[in-house]
Design a protein around this nucleic acid. Structure first.
Ligand SMILES: [Mn+2]
Ligand SMILES: [Mn+2]
Length: 531
DNA sequence: CGCCCCCCCG
DNA sequence: TTCACACCATCCG
DNA sequence: GATGGTGTGTCTCGGGGGGGCGAC
């Protein structure tokens, strides 16, 4: 909780990251290393301003509105401009100009308007040249080197959704990531993988911009397909990108393009989309064959369930017969009550007249218990799993071999669950309280946890943990209702009028019934229908 | 003038 | 940096 | 019932400032 001593704390943090990077040779390209060396030679003011700007969201700034007392702004701006890392005569698009200029300035430029928003319709039509002139005459500053700094961010964090502010948040105790022995690994096998991941992120960014347009971006698609497919990180990124592109092609009825993209993607639902594309493209026979294959070699319950919904339709289209298979029917209760606000609290209140204690937790309770019980497994210092100090989960958490690489530890954990009656969970709850960890919601009180452990048997916990471990996290029922006197509980999915069970919710309920875990659906009906 | 939204700061 | 969920529209048997 | 499209909350904290905007 000590205040950060230096006014240049953020620059010190960035240097820590640079030191981290320089210890991992062969990760960055030679040009990156040269850039870093050049950065290190610059005066402190220039370094500091550059880092300040990269930690802010826009690309364009007004120099007069930069308020950093620790920095000699004009010295820094001159240095950075000479280096070409920022520009003062950058072309502004109308949208950028709209955000950068204040209403009074727009009034002066284009005549007064009642609101700033009213300027937009005028500006959208103007040529960029207007604002280019304006930018040159005023104190606009554009950060032109964000890509270089983003590369370093990707190299350090292994992703682009964390930023340099992680350092200060941790230092101030706002976040508290698990303290795990780090090794000298990083998020990437080698420079090749890093480079490809960087490229994949770039393509994703371009795709996000382009995909709203109607035209099919052939070159972008070709580049995405050409991405190498080595290593789980890159495979995931590439598969996601290709699946997103395929979905777009499918919506525009470009089925053969969609199919070739899906064929390259190992995204979870890729095969299902392929079947739909074949079906919609008139290749019913092929769709049927792929569906039959998928029925036997499915990867997840969701894939199996979907294909069982498709097969009757496809069979019928081909004049074949398909046996009617009755679907699992979860238990339900109808509640007639007036509904104002969210249905879950209403249902909880209504149901609790039987003395139960409801908690509206969805996935949160069980993922919390899961991580607390398996803390030492999840945060085991496996080689390559932890490499920077701000990880809420091991780097291979999403990888296919996450479980098998720790199989001994998992079975020990499940063994321990049989005998220790939640001691592990409570111990970690108190020992780790507040630590940023995957799945853990610290708003759950110790009483909640104790109540859960009192009411839920170890067998049930174990069954639920098994399924979470297989990668199923979505779709847990809205409410858990405790009956401490009976040492029992039930899980309730609340459905308002006009809502229906989602596939993932059905799967959980089917699973609960297999293991004797009490569950039901609470259907809230309109009071008027009761009469 | 008060409110709200967005963004920044540490 | 999405993702999980609710809600709604459409078509079908 | 199947399918798919859209909307919504949340984006690790809590405090504060700038600016837009409508009410008075
Ligand atoms: Mn829910
Ligand atoms: Mn619900």
């Amino acid at each position: 909780m000590l205040p950060t001593p230096s006014p240049f704390y953020y620059l010190a943090h960035f240097h820590q990251a640079l030191d981290w990077l320089s210890l991992r040779e062969g990760l960055l390209a030679p040009e990156d290393a040269l850039w870093i060396a050049r950065f290190r030679r610059q005066p402190q003011d220039a370094q500091a301003l550059l880092i300040r700007l990269t930690m802010r969201s826009p690309a364009h700034f007004r120099i007069s509105r930069l308020d950093y007392p620790e920095i000699d702004i004009s010295l820094a701006v001159n240095t950075l401009t000479d280096l070409g890392w920022i520009a003062q005569d950058h072309l502004l698009t109308p949208s950028e100009a709209f955000h950068l200029l204040r209403k009074a300035e727009l009034d002066a430029l284009h005549g007064a308007q009642p609101t700033k928003q009213a300027h937009w319709s005028v500006m959208a039509g103007r040529s960029d040249q207007t604002f280019h002139q304006w930018a040159r005459q005023h104190d606009c500053l554009t950060l032109t080197i964000r890509d270089q700094l983003d590369r370093l961010r990707l190299a350090f964090f292994g992703n682009l959704h964390q930023g340099w502010e992680s350092f200060v948040l941790e230092e101030l105790g706002i976040t508290r990531f698990p303290k795990i022995e780090m090794d000298m690994s990083c998020g990437f096998e080698d420079q090749q993988e890093f480079e490809s991941c960087w490229q994949a992120h770039q393509l994703f960014e371009q795709w996000e911009v382009v995909k709203s347009r109607r035209k099919v971006p052939r070159t972008l698609i070709a580049q995405a397909i050409a991405l190498p497919n080595q290593g789980p990180t890159l495979r995931r990124l590439r598969s996601k990108l290709l699946a997103s592109m395929a979905r777009h092609a499918e919506r525009q009825a470009h089925y053969s393009l969609a199919l070739s993209l899906l064929n390259e993607s190992s995204y979870e639902a890729a095969r299902l989309r392929s079947i739909r594309c074949l079906e919609k493209g008139g290749q019913t026979e092929q769709a049927w064959r792929l569906a039959l294959q998928t029925r036997c070699f499915y990867q997840a319950d969701s894939e199996r369930d979907s294909v069982f919904r498709m097969l009757p339709r496809l069979s019928k289209a081909l004049g074949k017969t398909w046996p009617r298979i009755s679907r699992h029917q979860p238990n339900g209760v109808e509640v007639f009550t007036e509904l104002n606000g969210r249905p879950e609290p209403t249902a909880a209140q209504w149901l609790d007249r039987d003395g139960g204690i409801s908690l509206f937790s969805e996935n949160r309770l069980f993922t919390t218990l899961f991580t607390l019980h398996f803390w030492d497994v999840i945060y085991a210092p496996i080689p390559g799993a932890f490499f920077h100090p701000f990880q809420a989960a091991p780097a291979d958490f999403q990888h296919p071999d996450f479980v098998s690489r720790r199989s001994e530890l998992w079975s020990q954990g499940f063994e321990q669950l049989k005998t220790d009656a939640g001691r592990q969970i409570l111990w970690n709850y108190h020992r780790q309280f507040g630590t940023t960890a995957w799945g853990v919601d610290w708003r759950l009180s110790a009483e909640h946890i104790e109540l859960a452990l009192h009411c839920i048997s170890a067998d049930h916990l174990s069954a639920i943990f098994q399924r979470i471990l297989m990668g199923h996290r979505k779709g847990m029922p809205d409410l858990i209702r405790f009956f401490p006197a009976q040492k029992s509980y039930e899980l309730v999915e609340v459905k308002g009028p006009g809502d229906a069970l989602q596939p993932h919710q059905r799967q959980w309920m089917r699973y609960f019934d297999q293991y004797g875990i009490p569950n039901r659906v609470c259907w809230i009906r309109d009071l008027a229908d009761a009469v």
